[in-house]
Structures are given as C-alpha cells and as structure tokens.
Design a protein around this nucleic acid. Structure first.
Lengths: 358, 358
DNA sequence: CGATGTCATGACATCGGTGTCATACATGAT
DNA sequence: ATCATGTATGACACCGATGTCATGACATCG
C-alpha cells in the first residue's frame, strides 16, 4: 500500500506538500498540485484514516447502536425498519464526510458492553442510540461522555432525542376519516403501557374533539398484549366488542394488527371497504401496499427520523445547535390513503358538525 | 483520553509492559499485571484502535456493502431482510474480535465509489458484498484487491459466494405438500429472468418427478413482472388460469404475492385453506405469521447466510480455507408449516404413487 | 562453576499522516 | 533601499500503539 512518502518521492516534493494537496489547507502551486495528483493516481494512493485519526485526534466516526434495548431475545420483526433509519442517517453523515459505524446487538443485551467498548476504541465522536419501538430508556453511564442523540426513544434527563409524532399522526389519520364522512371510528390500541399507545389515543381523541364528535368509549379497545407469544389473544374479543358499537371504520394500532383484522372481518363475512373501512399505522409498505384492498396507514417515518437524528447529532458535535432548539424533536409524516377506507356521503347533521371545524 | 503512557506512569512501568498486559504476548509478573490493571481502570483507559492499526498494519475491520446493486433508485422493501444478514454476520465477526463496517448505498449506485473509498481508507481486510435479491453481479475492479465473499449473489469468475438454496427450499415445500395429499399444485412464479425463478421451478418439478407426478403445465404461470410499478399486473390473469386447472393448493413465488392471492381468492369467495391451500416463499414472518390463516412458507435464511458468509470470509482471510471447499455455498432452511395448507386424505391411487418415493 | 535458558522488563524505532515553525522568493507599499 | 505581506515549500516533531533487541535476575544443567 502506497504511503504519502511514496507519493512525495514520485512527485519530487515533501510529504507535507502532498498533505496540502489533499487537504487544501495551504496554497499549492498549480504545477506542483498536478504532479502530486498524478503521482497519487499512478500509485493508487489511498490515505490511511488510522494515521489521520491518530495525528488529528478526530476519527470522523459516528456510532449507531441498534437492536440494543430489547428485553426479549427474540424481538423478531421489530428490528426491520431499522434499515430505513440506517439509510436516513447514513445519507446525512456521508455528506458531512464522516463514517457511520453500526453496532447491532441483535437483541442480545449482554453484547452491548462489548459493542460500546468497540465504539470507544475507535474513538467515535458521537452516538445515535436507537430503540426498536417508541419508549423511554435509561442510558448506560458509559455513553454519557460524548454527544448522543436518542432515536425512537427518550430518557428522564432530557437527552436530545428524535421521536415519531404519534399523536399528530393518529390525529391526521382520524381527522381524514372524519372528512371522509366517518363518525363512528373504532380504535384497537397497542398494549396500554406503551408510550405510542397513549399518544395515538390522544390524537384520536383530539381529532374527535376538534370536530365536535363525542367519543363512544366502547369504540376504543385494547387490541394487543405486550407478550409477543400472546400478542393478539385479545384481538378476537376486542374486535367483537367494537363491532357491537357499530363503527364504519376500524383503526388498528399497527399494520400487523390491521392484517389480522382483515382476516377476522372476512371470516365474519364483512367486506372491506364496502361494509367496513380499515386503517393501520406504520405504513409498513411491505404489508400496506400488498394487502387487498390496499391499507390506509399513517406513516412511521423512520428514514426521516434517521436523517433528522444524524443532523441533530452533527450540530451537537459542532456546537452549532441553536440555543432555542428543543432537545426533543417530533418527526411528522403524511397518511397514506389507500382503498381500505371508503368515503361516506355526509348527511345534513354531519355537515353541520363539520362546519364547526373551520 | 488516557494513553498507554499515562497508564505506564501511573503503574510505574514502561508502556511496553502495559502493552504486554493487554495483549498477553509475553509473560508479566502477577504483581505488575495487577498494578497495570488497576491503573487502566483508574484512568478509564481505552486503547486506540487507530494507533494499533497503524503500528500493526491490521485494521480488524470487515466491510459490508449493501443496497448497492439496485438499478432502480426505489428498491423499497427489498432491502428489509438485510438487517438479518447484518445480525448474522455481526455475530460471527464479533466473536473473531473484529468490527463490521457497514456501507449502505440506499440503492443509489452513484454513491458506491465513495463508500468503497471509505473502506479503503479504513483498510478493511475483507468485504461482504450483499445483493438485495438472488442474482448475478459483476464486481467493481476496485474490490478485487482483497478477500471478498458475495452474499445472495454470484459472478462469472467463481468468486466465493453464499446463496440461498432456492431449488432445495421449493423442493422441500412441494414435497411436503405432496406428503400432505396434494397432487394438483399450482405455482405462480417470479419474473422469468430472475435466478430464483428458475431454481424454484426446478425444485417444484423435481418434487413432482420424485413422487412420480406429471406436472400439468397449466398449473405453472408467471405471477409477477420485473417492474415494481406493474409488478402484479399479471397476477389476476395468472390466478384465473391456474384456477381453471383445478389445483388444491397454490404456491406463490413469495409472501407478498401470497398476501395478494389471499385477497384475490377471497374476492372470488374461495376459503383458505378449506377450499384452497396457499403457500408462499421467504417466510417473511411479519407477513406469514400475521396473515389469517398463517401462511406456510419456505424460509429464505438471511440470518444463516450472513453468518455463513462471515465465516467463509474469515477463513479466506486467515488462509484456512480448506482446499476442497467449494467457492459457492448453498444455505438451506426448513419450511414453516402454518394453517394456510390443509392436509388432504389420500385415496388409494395416491397412496400407490406415494409408495414409490421410498 | 560456567554455560545456557527462561522470566521479566525497558529502550528505542516505527507505522503514516499533519501541526508548527522556518525559509525563500516575489510583490508592492513606504 | 527597506520593510511588510503573501505565496510556496520543507524540516521536524508528534499522535499512541507495538515489534525488535538488549539487559538483568534466577534457575537448571552438564
């Protein structure tokens, strides 16, 4: 492997001049520059980031730790959207001429210390700490010594974080349903202890309040359990209960649940969307686009969150964070409207209630 | 940040002795060792991988390039299973005391040269080159200068690679269907130019031959198009055609297609699995487990492939590759049997034909 | 008892860049 | 002519590990 000395010799200059050509930190004569560039090309020279890091005390590395926080060893599909986070973050980080170092614990918590040790050995300059679902976390002490941004999670100490706007997303979805003429909107929720559950239910309620519609509490039922093995044991009963309240649309806590509801409704001979509209959450396109009919869903904007988090981290690292910048950032996303939701004609009463909106 | 000199001073020894304590490459007195270890702990010392890399000329890094090969900029969900590959590879690589450096192009081919440059600057010692679907690729010349293992793809020059056993997987699935009493097995294939299409159809045919069943060619139809926008334009007609051939089960080229077939069959009032069994491919659990009824599917073993590829690469790097080791490795996986396939009673004729198997 | 070997340790150079400082020359202002 | 300024370049040290070699203290052996 050619070094800067080889290039210098080939170009007939000092190593420092080669360095100047690469970094542009001091003027270099045009003729010299070209000679150096030719030599670099001829020798297929690639600078060593190790040497650079050592001398400059800057690694240019940003660490991302994912799949880190699972309590269960089998977190299965929860980790899938991470790839979007990675892509979003990497796009931003590449532009800043840095490199993303990813540590995926694969849900094995006992491997985290090793991974963090690797980060420290490589002198990562900042950390993106990613949770697999919207939740509160407690940071390991060893992560407190460098800039960090939490992604899809938050802590009690107001560490900077980037979160999905669950409340706003559910609001937009329900608001859209109401605009499409739905008044009796069922909601099958996430497990109640989940952060996203509370937020989304709030959004659901705010959309109702905003349109002057009272929420029939029978329309809101818990649709999923925390344990992944019995995750949907409740669903059958929950669906039965909301159906008794005669909704025109069923909002599901996520697309997986919506997929199950498709099956359950069809078993009951209820046609989607002619007899019942259905909506999901996550806009997990692998599901939403290929279900039949296509599933209306509020997007969980992982790509945008990754990009925003990387951006926030870079600003944190360079000290250019605006003083008024909130430590907690919400990322919103549009609702993807597909065929699973059918518009209903508005009758006069409903029009009256809609008029209040504006 | 504390250095090895700080530790040496604190422990009252030379830096070299500290190095020896860390690396265990020469005997160190027990008393000295303990003093050094205490000093390291007290100073919160973390060795610098940059310095190590520079001196030892070994970076301990393995590069993985993913999402790299897409021709379309929007490869959407194709990239999702990559997370399993990453996890599988990282598990193996961590054990070898190395670090995985992941470069995800996000499907933007123009970013690849930059990413490879980063790899070279960091002196990665080996590369895992990942394709987003089973295909042939042509390696960039700049990757030929270090050990490399292709994952989910292969090239014309017999570069070592790890591939899913599509033929075997489809064979096992169809074989299982036959054992469960199915004789008329429809198959909706991938786009014909795809490598996996040919292999899976071969497996399908071999399972028939193995059981002495003739394949009714009307049962085999192309179910998907290459273009992602018109991907399933064919599906409606293809399904119609295979239904005319009166199958008892429909094998779909992948789980996405199976999900669509669920919808289409139900539109026609055909109950799954009572009137028609359905099977998929990929065992994409997010879909297969939550569809109703649960979808029988042949697993595409991404996790295992990642681990196998990492293992193969490590052996290649250390020169311990067995001389008789094939450059191309197939990874098999079991079929996940779920409720979408119903067993059928075997009549006497069928039993006779089954008897031939053994 | 001297030769040899093992254990334990340190001195010193080195890996490949870059920061600091010095130097040489050309240009323009005083 | 003198000095300041800017351009262009090189010498040299240094970042933090580790490989090489040397050294001293003991133990073992013939």
């Amino acid at each position: 492997m050619a070094t800067i000395y080889d290039v210098a010799k080939a170009a007939g200059v000092s190593p420092k001049t080669v360095s100047r050509v690469m970094n542009g930190d001091a003027p270099v004569n045009q003729v010299t520059r070209e000679a150096v560039e030719q030599a670099m090309l001829a020798l297929n020279y690639v600078p060593s980031s190790a040497a650079r890091t050592m001398r400059s005390q800057r690694s240019g590395l940003i660490g991302m730790i994912t799949g880190a926080i699972s309590t269960t060893h089998q977190f299965e599909d929860a980790g899938l959207p991470e790839i979007y986070l990675v892509q979003g973050a990497q796009r931003v980080i590449d532009q800043s001429n840095r490199t993303l170092l990813i540590a995926d614990s694969g849900g094995q918590a006992e491997r985290i210390p090793t991974l963090l040790q690797t980060f420290r050995e490589h002198r990562v300059e900042g950390v993106l700490y990613v949770a697999e679902y919207h939740r509160e976390v407690t940071l390991p002490a060893s992560l407190r010594d460098r800039p960090i941004v939490l992604v899809n999670c938050f802590d009690a100490e107001d560490t900077p974080c980037v979160l999905p706007d669950d409340e706003g997303g559910q609001f937009a979805l329900v608001e859209g349903l109401i605009r499409r003429g739905h008044q009796r909107i069922a909601y099958l929720t996430l497990p109640e202890h989940q952060v996203a559950c509370g937020l989304r239910v709030s959004g659901y309620r705010r959309a109702h309040a905003h349109n002057g519609i009272d929420v029939d509490e029978q329309l809101v039922q818990v649709g999923a359990l925390p344990s992944s093995t019995h995750e949907y044991d409740l669903l059958w009963d929950a669906l039965d209960r909301v159906l008794k309240a005669e909704p025109t649309v069923i909002c599901c806590a996520n697309d997986k649940m919506a997929m199950r509801v498709y099956g359950l409704l069809r078993e009951r001979g209820i046609a989607i969307p002619q007899q019942m509209s259905v909506a999901g959450y996550d806009d997990y396109r692998m599901i939403a686009e290929h279900l039949h009919p296509g599933l209306t869903s509020a997007e969980l904007p992982y790509g945008a969150m990754g990009a925003r988090a990387a951006d926030k981290l870079l600003r944190l690292m360079s000290g250019t964070t605006k003083t008024n910048e909130p430590s907690r950032e919400l990322v919103s996303a549009p609702v993807a409207w597909r065929e699973s939701v059918q518009s209903r004609d508005l009758n006069v009463t409903q029009l009256n209630s809609r008029r209040r909106e504006t």
